[in-house]
Amino acid sequence: MKRRDFLKGCLMCSAAAAVGTGSKAQAAGSFEGYPDAMGVLVDLTRCVGCRSCEAACNKEQRLPEPDVPFDDTSVFEEKRRPTERAYTVVNKYETGQGEPVYRKIQCNHCNEPACLTSCFVNAYTKTKEGAVIYNPKICVGCRNCMIACPFNVPGYSYSSAFNPVVKKCIFCHDTRLKNGRPPACVEACPQEVLTFGKRADLIKLGHERIRETPTRYYDKIYGEKEVGGTGWLYLSSVPFDKVGFDTTLQNEPIISNVKDFLGMVPMVLAIWPALFTGVHLLSTKNKDGHDDHDDSHNGTGGH
């Protein structure tokens, strides 16, 4: 009786898990973002490396004091990445053709974020406004999102012993985006490197800029297709791999890599119990019953 109950329980669990994972596996890859999701078009040809965006972000998000003032250009000596102390950083690239190119890095707010799909407590949310936000109250701190992010964006407040959390750009969702306002960096940028708008419109706008002044731009919008599309899009005067972008990224969302495995899960859950119980019955049929080894295990036959 007990065994049957157990097996039944097993099967029910498997069925539930199969439904859960199956539906998600199907959904993966087909999501192209909310229709009214906002984005930002970053035109690197305009950036002069003034770091106003970094300063504005620091104040808006109440981040810790920086190591050096925001008008200090010595930071360009190394290539930085976003951390728990700076949600956005600007790097400088000498391309060998005239002026250096500056590149602003922050969360790209993917249509189908790898951080979100890798999180086992669903701490991330892609809002209908287009931001990828994070709930620090349920984060366990496994840092799988940092492994998964193809842009190396999330930082972690390791130094906090009792409440370390993931720290990353949230598109100023709580303070601005939600109310229809652009993020602080966009507002602070003197050169209007950053154009705020609906992602769908920005893609048109980007292509229009390339068409109007083809000599100014490399013919591609980075983020239009990468890993399923990102909310933040880039235009550049030089090929993107020259300014630190990963140009080997796939066009499918990251979750599509995991689909092979997720698709296998319901199969295992459904087939294994039947298969192995069957094999057991077959391989022990000719003996004196299912528990033929029981007495041998009990030493000298205590019962």
Partner: peptide
């Protein structure tokens, strides 16, 4: 938490 508070069933880690 992944057992009782919040579920991320699409995640392999889940």
């Amino acid at each position: 938490y992944p057992m009782i508070v919040a579920f991320g069933p699409a995640a392999v880690l889940f």
